[in-house]
Design a protein around this nucleic acid. Structure first.
Lengths: 161, 161
DNA sequence: TATTAATGGTTAATTGACATAACTAAATTG
DNA sequence: CAATTTAGTTATGTCAATTAACCATTAATA
């Protein structure tokens, strides 16, 4: 998924295959198309930054969600991440193996676990949040503060259907 | 990738796991996070609509790009779609098998092909564009026309770095 | 011009994400 | 206390996407 550097040799049969993902088309007027490209850019940026901590975006999201909802169950986490329960298992295993989160057997219901962040996890999360904010700013460097606010507002309005 | 219907049983250990992808967290203030969720929504909508024509978004994009750049080579198409050359092969095979596009051996360089839309492809593309516009409007129904314009402008500004 | 290197396209193999189904243990219901 | 449901896990299969290796042709170089 990493595509940081512009492809090498632009071939000559095309108008100007202007770097990265050329695409001069009628696609330009579609929000979906612009959104996909912008999202990809943001995502790549974040992936690159998180990789320094050997983490993927979903793991970062998981940490943030656990932090906001301490003691939640895995099914809740799955729903919050919009992934299927089986995918939660290796994700949590990884976080637990790095001592960022813990599964605690539930008193009343011995099938389920409550999930919590460890002290280490909380500390790391604080750092990761700063990284995410920095990534946001970096990837949207073309916007000023007001535009960023407006973009966030519009995006929320879209997905909070 | 299809997740149209809200998950069934919200479990009770969480504040209000408000439908779909709950996520009340500090993630809410990140553009990258909002963008990902909005993009997913737009994408799912488009996928659903294109499936009626047995097409995927990348194939639709390919048609639009070929239309705008008749005679381009596969390497150009790969770059424009931000995919690797090997992925272009089955994609083009599919379009060619449905007689939407054609590979034409290049006169000067007998290794390469020029790619063109067939009459059928051009006709279908017109229809697909309308579908895409409709999908855009549907998925961003929470916005008015002015907001849509502004969103598009901001998104372009972001990805046209 | 003969040899070598580079390029367009393809094939093949590997990886990895993801969904689905099936299983265990515990809880609920009748 | 039998039958069903639920939380979590394991196992399996599918499919997309990257990578490496390959052929044909062109370009470069000696």
């Amino acid at each position: 998924m990493a595509k940081p550097s512009p492809p090498a040799a632009p071939s000559e049969s095309l108008p100007p295959p202007q770097m990265q993902t050329a695409l001069d088309s009628a696609l330009d007027d579609l929000i979906g198309y612009a959104m996909r490209r912008a999202q990809l850019k943001l995502f790549q940026n974040l992936i690159g930054r998180l990789s320094a901590h050997d983490l993927r975006p979903a793991q970062f999201s998981a940490l943030a969600i656990i932090d906001q909802n301490p003691g939640l169950m895995q099914a809740d986490l799955a729903r919050a991440l919009a992934i299927e329960p089986p995918q939660v298992v290796p994700l949590l295993n990884k976080l637990e193996s790095r001592a960022l989160a813990v599964r605690v057997r539930c008193k009343p219901d011995k099938r389920s676990y409550g999930i919590f962040l460890s002290k280490t996890g909380e500390t790391l999360l604080k750092e990761l949040k700063q990284i995410a904010v920095q990534s946001d700013l970096d990837a949207t460097a073309a916007l000023d503060g007001e535009e960023r606010e407006e973009l966030l507002r519009l995006l929320k309005k879209v997905y909070q259907d």
